[in-house]
Design a protein around this nucleic acid. Sequence first.
RNA 1: GACUCAGUAGCUCAGUUGGUAGAGCACAUCCCUUUUAAGGAUGGGGUCCUGAGUUCGAACCUCAGCUGAGUCA
Length: 398
Amino acid sequence: METVVIGLSGGVDSSVAANILKEQGYNVIGLFMKNWHDTTGLLEGDCPAHDDVVFAQLVARKLNIPFHTVDLSKEYGKRVVDYMFAEYKKGRTPNPDVLCNREIKFDVFIDAARELGAEKVATGHYCRKDEFEKDGKTYYRLLAGADKNKDQSYFLCQLSQEQLKMAMFPIGEIEKPRVRKIASDLNLATAERKDSQGICFVGKVDLPTFLQQKLDTKPGVIIEIAKDAELFSKRLDMAYDENPKDEELRKIVRPYYYFPKNGEIVGQHNGAHFYTIGQRKGLNVGGKKEPLFVLSIDIEKNIVYTGQGHNHPGLNRRALFIRNDELHWIRPDLALGNSQEKELKVRIRYRQPLQKARLLKRESGLFILFKEKQRGITSGQFAAFYNGEELIGSGVIA
RNA sequence: GACUCAGUAGCUCAGUUGGUAGAGCACAUCCCUUUUAAGGAUGGGGUCCUGAGUUCGAACCUCAGCUGAGUCA
């Protein structure tokens, strides 16, 4: 009987996942991890994370499986939270949960699970996995969850074959309403619990407040760039099917760089690094016909550039770039070689409908050209590439 | 110095031949969502520049004043 350690979070998904494993005949062990103790900037009054361990334990008892806890907060702080602050400081917008999966749930957590005798590790993610042989070698595939609405494969876009090999996703084949139903049929304490939100283990925080722990406030100006600003008309654009030269690729992939003379001052902010591209709320600038969105932040000069309306040219871009050292293939056998190209589906944020795109690999990195212009392409976020249902790679947007 | 125009929610403005006010943006809350965002719903908020007058009744009419913008000398 194979031993599987399931990460019990105190939510429904992992509860039901544990039950499914049990029914499938595995030797199941529940392991709860506590990764964060601070509550700075936490929203929602009381701290719901405090109850999580209690719920996890209740579920383990109900399912009659051993229950353990582990404190990985030191590693979490070092490998996820520090990265977060560092990225924001650089003016990028990180995705801590993608890192959390790569560095914690499918790394140090696996180590902890192994100490309990785990041969496999399971989580309550909505995604699927399968495997196949090629040239005598086993390859693992990360697939979207059967519940299209809940598919969480995006958050696992940085996993390796090694990590995938150990992983099991018991609820990947079923839909959320069914998960709820199973939980309530089993009378699990977590059946009615609200889905968790916010940063994994940290919770729903007010970002500026949270970031102020380590990042200083610094007053600066908000500048509005008109829709018809000259720099937009000078911008290179190209048809999706065109065959671009390398030089054109480099141009089209570049974010817009603004200067104060390109627009006019419309307000004040407390630190450009507290904002992200595409953001609308929190600018505190009124008197406009259409809402103002952040187009760009300049960390050096501490300026937030904004533009009016969803269709602002500065907000919608055709292409993005991923550096070689920030490019990751879940399926190394499908990695594009330099000068190779492939049409795939890409998403640049969780739950975004997949977008048709051309991936062009060059010596300097990977260029992604979208069929439709994309809103809020943001440096530091992850672009994930799908071949049908399968997530084959990802990278950090430069 | 004269004249013209303007002064209405935090901002930009609309408004009824006179019956005590609205829209967009901003903001708040909730929903959605294991990132950042976006999106959806709901909501709070106004001595209608000040004073006097006309009127049953004025933010809308009259007069004076204050403030701002502009034009002409």
